[in-house]
Design a binder for these strands. Structure first.
Length: 573
RNA sequence: GCGCCCUUAGCUCAGUUGGAUAGAGCAUCGGUUUUCUAAACCGAGGGUCGUAGGUUCGAAUCCUUCAGGGCGCGCCA
């Protein structure tokens, strides 16, 4: 129930159905007509640009046209006042009767308020960290981002599969296994861990080695080759447990873990390539040598090539290395063809900033595999810079250069991390000073929003009535003051925020909105200090039904919003 | 060399398909508490929306140029 959409449709209908209006206005492309919130300094509920758009299309004066439209739509009982401003904007007030209807609707919708019903099937792949160690802060942003987008899509009624692609194959895994092997030798045979072989130095490798010894006390360490497969599997299992534990602490649970080795085992690449070869999108050939500097080592070798330039990529991409083995991209191509076969309406990948260059080729791949039927949307999360008391935070006990999620969780709670990770657009770098988040004041947006809810609960508790009590409310009770006006106008924006956040996959709009809503509430709350009449409770009784009705609406939004964000909302603080 | 992202107040950032006088928070300065929770609120100052052009009734938003910062890139995953 997005009133901006509902009323815009009403306005369009009224205008289109009027005969005399149709005589003057011939050209009617209505697509750019919008109904929105007027700027702060205008005391109206809605603003419409219809006269500007139609005036331009028909070469008519927008202000004259606005006069005509005003006369038509003022007859509708949803609107009580319409005025023309500036170049021809229609500024509109919603009638009392319509307001009451809207308010009752929100109370009725309750935990569905804001939801824009959609019934699609989504697959969202996020985190997909290499299974070679615990998560670091960079993963954390994408993890929260992906999880909240999932919640958002689910809130709108979609089916969502949260997926983690486990890259348990390839060079990185070999190095990882070798690292564990040398840690085992260090522990059991006192052979010093080699520091110059490019192995993983992190101390978590020692933990993994210890766990392996516990389970296999008699493990033979004379030859890595002999035990490599088994050891690798075992080590990855422990490593994935670390990752899953980190995710759990962040409140994240994936529905599906898809292992790269499955692709290799089931020979998915060959099956997938057969189709693409038929369409001549995979061919045998030679790649152009790269432009720029490093041309010296270029060897021209015949190999399988994916024609990703046909779909807007900068280069065609090789599916084979010089030795004939598959590239990472080849496996990923097969993986995405597997996703396509699973019949999703939309695929979403959440990537770190370091994978930006990969987007074109993988979206090209999905287009090719699905014959342009399924869209893959890639969203990138930029870097996170950690600060403590304004100073860059560096603490690298476990991961060498990276700060682990585990380290971060020792400093800050899950709620703060989740909220703060979304307190920026995903394409901006994020500075996260977690000393701020430990404070209980306005510096800390998480607290500020939570406190709003706690205050509302405290009001209802003081009156000894339930937060959801059905407060009788008639047209005489609808007399909003300035603060209440601001609040109800903000409240009807909520479905629009959800709409934009989910169509653009930008969940930060929710955190910003909730903060703004809380600001108006806190401001209203404090008015009672100066002005007795603005106190919410006088002599133990509700001062106005209007305000308490609004508090119920606010708490509904806070609950819906925070549950999408996955942040707790205590009744008492 | 190429691709993507960013550039808005002293700092950190918002700003749906182009809309009205560009908004928050922090910081700075000044004020508010015998209270329904001051864990809060109110007020003030602060801007050439990186640069230069273009498109039009109208541009932070779209197109082009240049500059600065970040990330990535060739058969690593």
């Amino acid at each position: 129930m997005n009133v901006f959409i509902i009323y815009l449709e009403k306005i369009k209908q009224i205008v289109l159905n009027d005969k005399s209006f149709n005589k003057i206005v011939k050209n009617k492309n209505l697509s750019n007509i919008i109904l929105e919130k007027p700027p702060e300094n205008f005391d109206y509920d809605l603003s419409c640009n219809i006269a500007l758009i139609l005036g331009k299309q028909n070469n008519l004066s927008p202000r004259d046209l606005a006069e005509k439209i005003k006369k038509l739509i003022i007859q509708n009982d949803n609107f009580s006042q319409i005025d023309i401003a500036g170049p021809g904007f229609l500024n509109i007030k919603i009638s009392k009767k319509a307001w009451i209807k809207n308010i009752q609707n929100i109370l009725k919708n309750k935990n569905k308020y804001g939801s824009n019903v959609s019934r699609r099937k989504y697959n969202i792949e996020f985190v997909s960290a290499n299974p070679t160690g615990p998560l670091h802060v960079g993963h954390c942003r994408g993890a929260v981002f992906g999880d909240v987008i999932s919640n958002l899509l689910i809130f709108n009624g979609n089916k969502v599969t949260k997926e983690f692609y486990v890259n348990d194959y390839g060079n990185q895994i070999n190095i990882f296994t070798e690292s564990v092997f040398h840690r085992l030798k260090e522990i059991k045979l006192k052979v010093p861990f080699p520091s110059n072989k490019g192995l993983y130095p992190g101390s978590y490798i020692i933990d993994i080695a210890n766990k392996i010894i516990k389970i296999n006390p008699d493990i033979k360490l004379d030859n890595l080759k002999k035990i490599e497969k088994k050891l690798s599997k075992e080590a990855i299992k422990h490593s994935m447990n670390l990752i899953k534990l980190d995710l759990k602490h962040l409140g994240i649970k994936h529905d599906n873990f898809f292992y790269e080795t499955e692709i290799v085992k089931k020979n998915l690449i060959k099956k997938c390539l057969m189709i693409l070869k038929k369409d001549k999108l995979v061919i045998e050939g030679y790649l152009q040598p790269p432009k720029g500097e490093n041309q010296k080592n270029w060897k021209s070798i015949k190999k399988l090539i994916f024609k990703s330039t046909s779909f807007g990529d900068d280069n065609d991409r090789s599916l084979q290395k010089d030795d004939g083995s598959w590239t990472y991209f080849a496996n990923d191509l097969a993986y995405h063809s597997h996703k396509v076969k699973r019949n999703y309406d939309n695929l979403i990948n959440i990537l770190g900033a370091d994978h930006t260059g990969y987007i074109k080729r993988i979206t090209a791949a999905v287009k090719a595999i699905s014959k342009n039927k399924i869209k893959l949307t890639c969203k990138v999360c930029q870097l996170v810079k950690l600060y403590k008391n304004g100073q860059p935070f560096k603490m690298s006990k476990r991961l060498g250069d990276f700060i682990s999620v585990n380290d971060l969780l020792k400093e800050v709670d899950k709620d703060s991390i989740r909220f703060m990770m979304l307190n920026r657009g995903n394409e901006s770098e994020l500075e996260f000073d977690f000393s701020k988040v430990l404070e209980k004041n306005k510096d800390n947006p998480v607290f500020y929003v939570q406190y709003c809810y706690a205050r509302i609960n405290s009001l209802f508790k003081t009156l000894k009535i339930n937060l959801y009590k059905d407060i009788s409310f008639n047209i005489e009770d609808f007399k909003p003051n300035d603060f209440e006006n601001k609040l109800i106008r903000k409240i009807i924006e909520w479905p629009k925020v959800i709409d934009i956040a989910s169509t653009k996959l930008e969940p930060h709009r929710i955190t910003f909105y909730l903060y703004d809503l809380s600001t108006i509430f806190h401001s209203y709350w404090s008015q009672g200090n100066k002005n007795e009449e603005l106190k919410f409770i006088i002599d133990g009784k509700m001062n106005s039904k209007m305000s308490f009705k609004i508090f119920q609406l606010i708490s509904i939004i806070l609950q819906n919003g925070m549950s999408i964000l996955g942040v707790s909302l205590p009744k008492k603080m």
